[in-house]
Structures are given as structure tokens and as C-alpha cells.
Design a protein around this nucleic acid. Structure first.
Lengths: 136, 136
DNA sequence: CAAGAACACTTGATTTGTGAAAGGATTATG
DNA sequence: CATAATCCTTTCACAAATCAAGTGTTCTTG
């Protein structure tokens, strides 16, 4: 299904997803066209899900990075999900996990004030344990 | 520094980082060239750190996704870091965090067997609490 | 063993996108 | 009021992507 060249292609595109097919071809010893058709195949197979950018969240004004272990007392998780919907700007990931907590929520905030506001409102629906990222 | 158009550009590129400048320009009501020069500026300012792909980790053969809270008994964290170095293929992120644990370690594994091996060796250096991601 | 389908790649022609230079509109500045 | 700075557009030359054949290799199958 996938061979060594495909792996190299994925590694190359992970580093620079905007590389031209010609460049990519050079890296894996193929013509641009051959590289391109392999990439199209990887996209069709769903291995490459899409192209995106790495954004400096600090420069974007969201320096406060944190993880929250979420503990739901109630049996109904919907209020929590609904709340997250309304705070999409802050939420980066919400993982349903095994272990003590029900969810692991990853967020970004402009400052501790916004974080505090978020926590106050979050606490209306669930309990949490907060971990702030000191260094990524 | 950044205006509404820049925000739109970043949102558009987050969704599709390989979009042509012409397309991008259309989205934000600019010519391709104007869009391009804004993108170059955002790159130079370090707001756009780079371009990459979203890879389907399941299709890539790493369906087991987990987070580990790391507790270091010893005062020396170096053995732990050295260990991580030798297991880069599995490690996605290692966040230094506030809270109960010292680090939050995000990993991917092909199967529970590899995870188990990893945990056995990890345990030679630190204690941990394991959370497996049920749903991203 | 040979025919032929399937596959992956290359080549060449055409379309499309990119980058550089020049020029115009708007806004700030002495 | 003149000047500079900023940001945009237009134009054009060049580079890259795409499309359509065409080639060679491998694998299957009669």
C-alpha cells in the first residue's frame, strides 16, 4: 500500500506542505508529475487529510496555553459540549479519554483574565483540574 | 500590525495551506499578488511559522493515541529527556506543565504492545498516569 | 512461454500561477 | 501644500502544474 517513497513524501510535506511538486520530486528522485500523482493518491486514500499552516499562537495574541482535565458530575455531557461550542475561539482540542478524567481539553487564551472568565463559566457545567503549559 | 484581512488569510490557510494565492485573494477580495505579499509579510513576522500536512495517524499505522502525566521522583530530568530522544517516533509533544504532574506527554503507537513496551521502559525513569484517547 | 493487462513512471504541450517592476490611490507627515 | 509611505493593481516574463500520450516493467493468465 505505502512504500518508502510515500513515507519520504509525507515527511517532506510535514516539513513543508507548500513545497512544489518539482522540489518534492527532486527529494524523492522522481519527476514532479510522478510525485504529484503519488500525492494525489495519498490524498484519495485519506492518508494526507489536508494542508495547513503552523501559526505562532503567541504572535496571534494567545500566549496562555493550558490543558484541563474535565470531570463531569452529571450524567449529561451536552451542556458541556454546548458550552464548548460557544467558546470555539479558545478551544483547540477536546479529547475523550480513559483514566480519571472524562475529557482532556486543550485551550489557548490571550491572557489569564480570559482564562479565568472561561473557568468560571466552565465550572457551571463540570469540574476541572487545570494545567498551564510552561513550555511546549 | 494585523488587520481583519490578515486574520481571514490565516483562517483560510489553516483550512487549506496549499491554496493558490489567486484563490486566497478571491476569498479576501484582493488580487493574488496582494494576497501573496501579505502572506510573505506574515511569514517574515513569524506569525505563519510554516506549512504542513494533516496526516491520518490511523492510516499511517499509529491508531493508539495517549496522554501521559509524568511525575519525576528524582531531581534530574535528563534521563527522562534522553529516553524521549530515543523514542521520537512515538512522541508527539512533551509539555512542561503546572499542576500535579511535571510533564504532559502526548504519544502515538501502532498498538498496545508498543505502548506497553514504552511504558515499561518509561517507568525506569519516571512515574506516570496514563490516559488513552477514545475520541479526538 | 508468451500475450496482455495493470501499474508507475517519463516526456512534451498547454494552461495556470508566481514574482518582479511600474504605476495609481490613499493616508500620514513635515 | 508637497512629500513620503503604504498598499493595492496591472502587466509581463518565467516557473510550475496539469493533461495526454507514450514507454517500460511487472504480474497475471491462458
Amino acid at each position: 500500500m505505502m512504500d518508502a517513497t510515500d513515507i519520504k513524501i509525507i515527511e517532506a510535506l510535514r516539513e513543508n506542505g507548500r513545497m512544489t511538486m518539482k522540489e518534492l520530486g527532486k527529494k524523492v528522485h522522481l519527476t514532479g508529475q510522478a510525485a504529484s500523482s503519488r500525492v494525489i493518491k495519498l490524498e484519495e486514500e485519506g492518508i494526507i487529510e489536508g494542508y495547513t499552516i503552523r501559526v505562532n499562537e503567541r504572535a496571534m495574541g494567545n500566549p496562555v496555553h493550558c490543558f484541563l482535565q474535565i470531570f463531569t458530575n452529571s450524567l449529561h455531557h451536552k451542556p458541556y459540549f454546548s458550552f464548548l461550542e460557544t467558546r470555539q475561539e479558545y478551544v483547540r482540542n477536546n479529547y475523550k479519554i480513559s483514566g480519571e478524567a472524562c475529557y482532556l481539553l486543550e485551550c489557548r487564551f490571550p491572557s489569564n483574565e480570559e482564562l479565568d472568565q472561561f473557568l468560571i463559566q466552565l465550572n457551571e457545567h463540570v469540574s476541572y483540574k487545570l494545567s498551564i503549559v510552561i513550555r511546549g
